[in-house]
């Protein structure tokens, strides 16, 4: 498979994504409003890092800054040893919104078009690779449908296929399952874990769900405070089953550092 031999030649020692002393904010009439202060973390190649925190804590803002949509007040984001200064296909984004697919393109063309537009493939190659990635996300049957004919979960799977097809250095996922029902969400979480493992993709994943964080992530970066900063980083590498003892343990740790009761974790 194409992505399995991802040709990015960085040793495991150097992180794929490096965020150093990142401060983010926006101008208001009263002056500077700082939303994120001095955040540092890194994500190793082939691993998934979670940005976890309550709504409005600035976790999506950090992801947008990594994507290149927001310029930092201070600090820097480095992806594959290159400093981020604008959006680019090496940091493909899966947004939360279902309407992130081009409604005038079929599912297949939604995945193939970015490959052509970024000059990564000719028309025929793009078609082939798009078919391949639709296969990975088990979307073959929907290839010739238009986005409005798909359910929300299917749309998100197409968006993930489109992002993965670009073979980004880092895949950015901004609460991709936030608007899905719990059953679909769990199914997609397991699917993403499997695909990410298989393709050795590096992922930065934003969520407010502790259970999702414990299940999907290697490292869980917990944000807290206002302006928010990194409260702690929890290692969740031991978790491989949402119902396992390890999952509960990691959930308890995360909840503790978020100042919550562990019992809240279960039903999340």
């Amino acid at each position: 498979m194409h992505a399995a031999e991802a040709p990015i030649d960085h040793s495991r020692a150097t992180p794929m994504l490096d965020v150093v002393g990142l401060s983010l904010g926006y101008k208001t009439p009263a002056g500077m409003s700082v939303a994120v202060r001095d955040v540092s973390f890194s994500v190793r190649r082939g691993e998934t890092a979670i940005l976890l925190g309550p709504s409005g804590c600035g976790k999506s803002t950090i992801l947008k800054s990594v994507a290149g949509f927001i310029k930092p007040l201070q600090g820097a984001v480095t992806v594959a040893n290159r400093k981020v200064d604008k959006p680019g296909p090496d940091r493909a984004v899966v947004f939360q919104e279902f309407d992130q697919l081009f409604p005038w393109r079929t599912v297949l063309d939604n995945v193939a078009y970015p490959l052509r537009a970024t000059g990564k493939a000719t028309r025929a190659e793009a078609q082939d690779r798009a078919n391949l990635w639709l296969g990975v996300m088990r979307l073959e049957a929907a290839a010739h449908k238009f986005p409005h004919q798909l359910s929300g979960g299917m749309k998100q799977r197409v968006a993930i296929a489109r992002a993965l097809a670009l073979e980004p250095a880092v895949l950015l996922m901004d609460e991709p399952f936030g608007a899905l029902d719990p059953q679909t969400r769990l199914r997609l979480q397991l699917e993403v874990i499997e695909v990410v493992k298989r393709t050795a993709a590096t992922v930065l994943f934003v969520t407010h769900s502790i259970a999702e964080a414990a299940l999907v992530g290697h490292d869980i970066i917990i944000l807290d405070g206002s302006p928010s900063s990194v409260a702690s980083i929890v290692d969740a590498r031991s978790v491989c089953d949402p119902a396992s003892q390890e999952a509960l343990e990691v959930g308890r740790q995360v909840a503790q550092s978020m100042g919550q009761e562990a019992s809240h974790v279960i039903g999340d």
């Binding site: 994507a67 604008k86 959006p87 680019g88 984004v93 309407d99 081009f102 537009a117």
Partner: peptide, 21 residues
Amino acid sequence: NQTLVNVGRVLGLSWWRMVTD
């Protein structure tokens, strides 16, 4: 739709392709 425009920006589309595509 701003999300679609952002998808275009992630792809690094030129302003002309942003308009046409």
